[in-house]
């Protein structure tokens, strides 16, 4: 199962992330996780939010360049070496990870992965019995 991630194009300008976060907040959209990728003159903010479709709509209304991307969110134990095992499965099947970000809380860690091949990646995770989160799990 994949999850829809929200991606927002941002110029490198002070206060710009704030504008995104405020807009989401005003519309009652909660953020579960996000990461910021940056280049010298622009950045891409990637977020997992409570309502992607609504987020796209409200941000577009504010003239942001926004898109949603399918990603995989997996859950593993918050212990040393747990993620390494899973990434090893993916590498063995030649699945390349374009980017990933993660957060850990209590005994579980959630990892957002954007692989080059979603289907293949899911198949590997399924076969190895990894926990892949769905929209409602977050």
């Amino acid at each position: 199962m994949t999850i829809k991630q929200l991606s927002v194009f941002l110029e490198n300008k002070t206060g710009r992330i704030n504008d995104v976060v405020r807009t989401l907040g005003q519309n009652g959209i909660n953020m579960h996780a996000f990461s910021m990728a940056e280049t010298t003159d622009f950045g891409i903010l990637r977020l997992i939010v409570s309502d992607v479709d609504k987020a796209v709509e409200v941000l577009r209304a504010q003239n942001f360049a926004v898109m949603s991307t399918e990603v995989i969110c997996l859950s593993c134990d918050n212990t040393p070496g747990s993620l390494a095992v899973i990434l090893e499965y993916l590498a063995e099947e030649k699945i390349f990870i374009e980017y990933m970000y993660a957060f850990a809380q209590n005994d579980k860690a959630h990892v957002v992965i954007k692989p080059n091949d979603l289907k293949a990646c899911l198949a590997v995770l399924d076969a190895k019995g990894c926990t892949v989160l769905q929209k409602g799990d977050l």
Partner: peptide, 8 residues
Amino acid sequence: RDFFSDDI
């Protein structure tokens, strides 16, 4: 807006 890519 519609040609923005998530890929840096």
